[in-house]
């Protein structure tokens, strides 16, 4: 938290309402101006006043007939003062306010307490769990966002290392492109070029995934600080081969692709499908793209 500027997130959130600040009572106006950095911060601002100013700005916007949506992406990474001010305000703002908050969970946790106290207020809370993206979806995403058309084997590796996280997959793909500009074929370097690519891949992915495994909700600090951007975007030189290509000790005894064959999947979907893509304990058959 220390490296995240205090109230930076709240400033981003309140900036569209800056025209309403002048109407606030003086203590709240001062707090809002300090948050928005339009006033010197020599004056000490009480956290409760920041929360009250946040609430007032949201309520005043609603009263003025503005549609207001508070959107917070990756809520565990909010700076703490912003988190406290939002928690205070969202519990108190009356009906009419829409709030959209995203947070990431690890794959083993059950549904947790909603962030920002959203499950403690009178408003209706809807949870939408988003599963990791599958190989098919990542294929479309990477083609659209990175312009990369990867080989099936490389795409499967990226999907596995990114654990279905689209942002990680994009960064890993860019790292692979830098390491091997013609990503469809292995770079012609050293004796086992494909494994060299995998080493780049694994190193880049490991750095990025740290940011994914954060808890959702509550006031707990995230499990680890996010990696500096250059750790993700600048892969280190190749290192010795790791366990990347070794079978996992936790691999299930049942092969998902053998359990449901391509013929089974095509019969179920009632349409031709491409060859299976196994990723850990899963198997995915996608329609032709």
């Amino acid at each position: 938290m220390r490296d995240r500027p205090a109230l930076a997130a709240l400033a981003d959130l309140l900036r569209p309402l800056a025209d309403l600040v002048a109407e606030l009572p003086r203590p709240q106006r001062v707090a809002a101006e300090v948050v928005l950095l339009t006033r010197d911060s020599e004056e000490t601002v009480d956290e409760r006043v920041v929360g009250a100013a946040t609430r007032s700005l949201l309520e005043n916007a609603l009263a003025a007939g503005r549609p207001v949506l508070v959107a917070v992406d990756d809520s565990p990474w909010l700076d703490r003062p912003s988190e406290r001010a939002l928690r205070f305000a969202l519990r108190r703002v009356g009906p009419g306010l829409s709030t959209l908050v995203s947070c990431r969970t690890d794959t083993t946790s059950t549904l947790r307490i909603a962030p920002l106290g959203l499950d403690s207020g009178p408003a209706r809370l809807t949870r939408l769990p988003l599963a990791p993206l599958g190989v098919g979806a990542l294929h479309h995403l990477l083609r659209e966002r990175v312009g990369a058309t990867l080989s099936r084997s490389l795409l499967a590796r990226i999907a596995r290392e990114a654990a279905g996280n689209p942002l990680v997959a994009i960064e890993v793909t860019r790292a692979v492109q830098r390491a091997a500009p013609t990503a469809r074929r292995p770079a012609p370097v050293r004796p086992r070029p494909e494994e060299t690519t995998v080493r780049y891949l694994k190193l880049a992915a490991t750095a990025a995934v740290v940011a994914v495994l954060t808890a959702c909700g509550g006031n707990a600090e995230p499990a680890a600080a996010p990696p500096p951007p250059n750790e993700v975007t600048e892969p280190a030189p190749p290192i010795e081969e790791t366990e990347a290509t070794e079978p996992s000790a936790e691999a299930p005894a049942v092969d998902a692709c053998a359990l449901v064959t391509k013929a089974d999947a095509e019969k179920l979907a009632d349409t031709p499908l491409e060859d299976p893509v196994p990723v850990r304990e899963t198997c995915t058959y996608s329609g032709p793209v």
Binding site: T108, G134, L259, V260, E281, Y285
Partner: peptide, 11 residues
């Protein structure tokens, strides 16, 4: 569009 996903185990 069609996709069939198979998950085995705790997942």
């Amino acid at each position: 569009m069609a996709q069939v996903e198979i998950y085995v185990g705790d997942g």
